[in-house]
Computed example of a mutant assay.
Amino acid sequence: MTTNRRFADRLNAEQQHRLAELGVGPQKAPRARKAAAKTAAASRPRTGGEAFQKGLQALQQYIARTGSVTVPRGHVEAVDIDGAEHAVKLGIWLTNTKTRRAKLNHTQLDLLAGLGVEWAQ
């Protein structure tokens, strides 16, 4: 049916009439999408700076409170950053950071290793 709509102009008059009786009109061709313009931010390498710092601060706070680097996956840690409280999904952040560790720079890995994160060493 979709093919008939897209190529209605290729059908003969009888076929077009039958489709019209069924209430099926020709489908308009989809408009071409314009490519998004590159911005300066998009061209810079992504370091995960702000999000990484939030996660790191939450991990430091968690370790100070519990004495453990092992964080349950569903744990959410509330951290105070510049006077505003943020809820950091610490368990998920740590799992995602581990999964993407190949994209971390040496400084980030050193910070995590300094906290006792085994896979960052």
Rank of each mutant, 00 (worst) to 15 (best):
T97R: 13
Q53E: 15
H86R: 10
A113H: 11
H86P: 01
R46I: 12
W93N: 06
L104T: 04
L112V: 07
V117C: 07
T39G: 12
L11E: 03
L56A: 05
V88T: 09
E77T: 04
E85T: 15
G91F: 05
E50K: 09
N105M: 04
P30S: 08
Q27F: 04
L56K: 07
A37V: 12
R46N: 13
L56D: 10
R46Q: 13
H75R: 12
W93A: 10
N105Y: 03
A40V: 01
K38T: 05
Q60H: 14
G23E: 09
L22M: 15
A78G: 03
P26D: 02
I92T: 13
M1C: 03
K34C: 05
G23P: 06
D82Y: 03
V76P: 03
A42P: 02
A78W: 00
A84S: 04
T70I: 07
T47A: 05
R46S: 14
L94E: 02
L22E: 15
R6A: 13
Q27P: 01
T99F: 11
Q15G: 14
Q121K: 15
H86L: 13
P26G: 09
K54Q: 15
G91A: 05
R44Q: 15
R100P: 00
L109F: 04
F52M: 11
K54T: 02
D80N: 09
P26A: 14
V88D: 10
K54G: 02
G83D: 10
G91W: 02
G74P: 00
E85S: 15
I81P: 00
